[in-house]
């Protein structure tokens, strides 16, 4: 067997979609092993010995704002298509759902909820989606939910 045979490769077209992913997965696996050995084990030891906490757990965590953002966003995404389908292909789903979403998000993020800031937040929640919707969906015919 000559040296050139060593480099030979035959790719069957019907299977060719798996060729590159296999290489990448092989490399990923190899690197993951190396990382576990080089970094994971020392970290694990340090945590075990109580020198440090898990890297994920450090620092303060604002549960309300973090999960609030996630929850509101999921609700926002879920509501947009069905609302949009009530008046198909007008982008109104985006407009109608964006306003309460923005308002809720702003209020969630506010630390000092006084009249001025709340008013600003409401104005923002109203103006921004309307402006975006009018400019894009109406004037430029961009597809929105």
């Amino acid at each position: 067997m000559g040296l050139s045979d060593l480099f030979e490769v035959r790719i069957v077209f019907d299977e060719s979609h798996l060729f590159f992913p296999r290489i990448i997965q092989g490399l990923l696996l190899a690197m993951a092993l190396v990382i576990v050995v080089v970094r994971g084990i020392p970290t694990l030891r340090a945590v075990w010995a109580g020198h440090r906490t898990w890297p994920v757990m450090d620092g303060p965590f604002d549960h309300l704002r973090f999960f609030g953002t996630l929850g509101l966003t999921v609700a926002y995404f879920l509501l947009m298509p069905p609302v949009g389908e009530m008046v198909p292909n007008t982008g109104l789903g985006f407009l109608i759902v964006s306003i309460p979403y923005m308002a809720a998000l702003s209020v969630l993020y506010l630390h000092r909820r006084d009249r001025r800031t709340l008013l600003l937040a409401m104005a923002n929640a109203l103006i921004a989606p309307v402006a975006v919707w009018y400019l894009l969906a109406r004037l430029l015919n961009v597809t929105l939910p």
Binding site: P88, N89, T90, R138, L139, T143
Partner: peptide, 23 residues
């Protein structure tokens, strides 16, 4: 262009079974 934009808002209900905005 502008009129085209506004027309959709105020488009009179055309005599068609298709919605005003067909995709």
């Amino acid at each position: 262009t502008v009129a085209g934009g506004i027309a959709t808002t105020s488009a009179a209900l055309a005599d068609t079974g298709f919605p005003n905005n067909l995709r």
